[in-house]
Nucleic acid binder design. Structure first.
Lengths: 390, 390
DNA sequence: TTGAAAGCGCTAACAG
DNA sequence: CTGTTAGCGCTTTCAA
């Protein structure tokens, strides 16, 4: 019943498919090539020279291997070599482009070296994170990159001490000895806070991410720095929210507006929170930046096409991921080609531990900031799309 | 030099960390518990009943295992059981939220069953996809979910035939026997095209994704359907672009505007292309929807906060991912608890192969469509935020 | 220049 | 109720 002119597509690669459920093993190859498994192994592992295997034999073995579509079982290999070629990556939410990008960089960075990435999604829960760590450990990952939920680090430290290299990114911890990479959140926060302050804002509401997480604390610190430098203090009641989510931003905004009707600006610790905030403001009939100014962190591809393009501090996510990968590989004693790993503590001013890498961020000024409302000045946002790096 | 009041944090979980580089093995546990490895193995694998192991022994073994922080090596286990507990997921770009969400669903769906996800990012290149497939195969994945680059399926089919279950999602292939899950692109395209047509648009430019990919072909088909039903034909010159990217959308838009100045609407096959298009239009001083209407596929969290909220057909991504996971698990003979796997071919009208699952999409009408420009009517977009499912 | 054999850590007959 | 034994597929001494 096949069409008359049907030509069997004779696999040009010459690699035949093994019989289902009967994977071709090194033994098969050896047998078919008429050599021992040891010789076959050596021939295929580029050890021909080392063991002075005759070129003829080597070729023969390689040929047979190709014909049979042989692929050495990495699990058998792992067992023998005690190297799994697996790297674990655990993030709070892989559908968040921030974490996805980090995972991507790791994947791209290690793939060429024969490693593969085992992915874990902790759903922002420390307990799940914990479980995933165990699961991946059992799978014999050789190293772990984790973007922790951010509140608890004991299990990670212990793991690292037990001999499994762990590096953390983004939600790093205070004064911990785990190698960490993060954005320079303090400088970033200070810079973005300054654009608010320069316009005259003093009553600034803060939409906080997870309170106990270092990024949240550090960003708050940066804001405080800026305020102090401008000669005023932040009202402690101007802080609300406790998650890096849209919902949190929405709720916190409403809460803050009720707490202090004088508030003229919002400092959102992440884009989702800023979005939630904008919804809340819209519901209350506030226009941005006329009635309320707002700044945030991070960007997304269409940010400039929004109704109110946000002024933000954007993290260099790929850099973050690449750096984390480099640190990881260095701990595995694999030399990462991209470029030499820079020394930790790129940013000078803070008491950076011996293993904290900080990557600079970029300030993107758009049009979500104007002078405080009581002046009613509509045309206040002067500098648009001006970029400054620091 | 340590602080005077430093108390050693005595690990309350009671699970000691193994000596670095000297992982605790089943043998250790057995020895310490005074039993043989087999007994230890059985006790720890819940086979106590089956082998009638005395509760005392079982408890003892479990206790020792806990004390030592024992974790069975999955690689040894895999070798013996011939089951790796690994599922491969290959996507064109994990930093794209669409694919990230799919990966997420797979990860969440299989994690509870003890499986882990091995991630591969093909960077939209078939060659890399190919290489990743090999790499993951060597790592003994038990099944593969791939969102293919979309142009070539031979290697996947061959792989599946060779006994490794493969399921493809999104960029499925025509008339192929691999289990596939995708959105009902034809119906989706028809619906979104109809909102254009109902407003009177006839000169519709198409921003195509990868031409050879089935989603692109199918969406074009849906548009053609709608046009035919309305009694006109699409000009073949109104198609441009060949990638699911912003750049492609930008270039294609410029190209189309030059080719046909009469064009009044744009049909973008993905959000990035639509965004690129909007940039191009902005550069040429076109206002949306006054001077040009536009519809697209897929949504993103802030879509409604854009300058011009797009009318789109949105895919049910989590559903897509869950369905794919269910299909995967079924092929592994694991019963996926969530819900029974529905029969394939959800959508009735097309000659669906025995293993194609189609999931319905939702039409989201926002304000990027108005009547064609020559009437100059500014207030034409009537129905906003109206939702229709089909 | 090549083979034989041991063993990575675990499970599953097959005995007791 | 428990132990002995034989591998899973591979790498690597050690011997020829």
């Amino acid at each position: 019943m096949k069409p008359p002119n049907h030509r069997t597509p004779d696999t040009p690669q010459g690699s035949a498919s093994p019989a289902p459920g009967h994977p071709v093993t090194l033994k098969n190859v050896a047998a078919r090539a008429g050599v021992s498994v040891s010789t076959a192994s050596r021939a295929l592992n580029g050890q021909a020279r080392k063991y002075r295997i005759s070129p003829t034999t080597e070729k023969a073995v390689r040929q047979v291997a190709a014909d049979l579509g042989f692929q050495a079982s990495q699990v058998a290999r792992s067992l023998r070599l005690k190297r799994s070629g697996l790297i674990g990556v655990i993030v709070p939410d892989i559908s968040n482009p921030f974490f996805a990008s980090i995972a991507r960089e790791v994947s791209l960075g290690v793939e060429a070296l024969g490693f593969s990435v085992l992915l874990g999604d902790s759903r922002e829960e420390t307990e799940i994170e914990q479980r995933l760590v165990d699961q991946l450990r059992a799978k014999q990952v050789e190293a772990l990159l984790v973007c922790p939920v951010g509140v608890e680090s004991d299990h990670l430290v212990k793991l690292d001490r037990s001999g499994l290299p762990v590096v953390v990114a983004d939600r790093v911890f205070d004064g911990i000895e785990l190698p960490s990479v993060t954005s320079d959140n303090r400088a970033a926060a200070r810079a973005v806070a300054e654009v608010l302050i320069e316009q005259g804002h003093r009553k600034i509401g803060v939409l906080s991410g997870i309170r106990d997480s270092l990024p949240a604390k550090t960003r708050l610190q940066g804001l405080t720095d800026a305020a102090e430098q401008a000669g005023f203090n932040l009202d402690s009641s101007s802080l609300a929210g406790n998650a890096f989510t849209e919902q949190s931003g929405y709720d916190a905004t409403l809460e803050l507006m009720d707490r202090d009707p004088e508030m003229t600006a919002i400092f959102a610790m992440c884009t989702p929170a800023a979005i939630g905030s904008m919804r809340a403001l819209a519901e209350r009939g506030y226009a941005i930046p006329r009635d309320m100014s707002i700044v945030a962190f991070d960007d997304h591809p269409f940010a400039d096409l929004m109704k109110t393009p946000l002024t933000v501090s954007v993290q260099d996510i790929p850099r973050l991921g690449q750096l984390a990968t480099a640190v990881l590989l260095k701990r595995l004693d694999v030399d990462s080609s991209p470029q030499a790993l820079p020394p930790p503590g790129t940013s000078a001013d803070s008491p950076s531990s011996a293993s904290l890498w900080k990557v600079p961020t970029t300030l993107l000024q758009r049009s979500s900031v104007a002078v405080p409302r009581h002046k009613g000045d509509r045309a206040a946002s002067s500098r648009v799309q001006q970029t400054r790096s620091f």
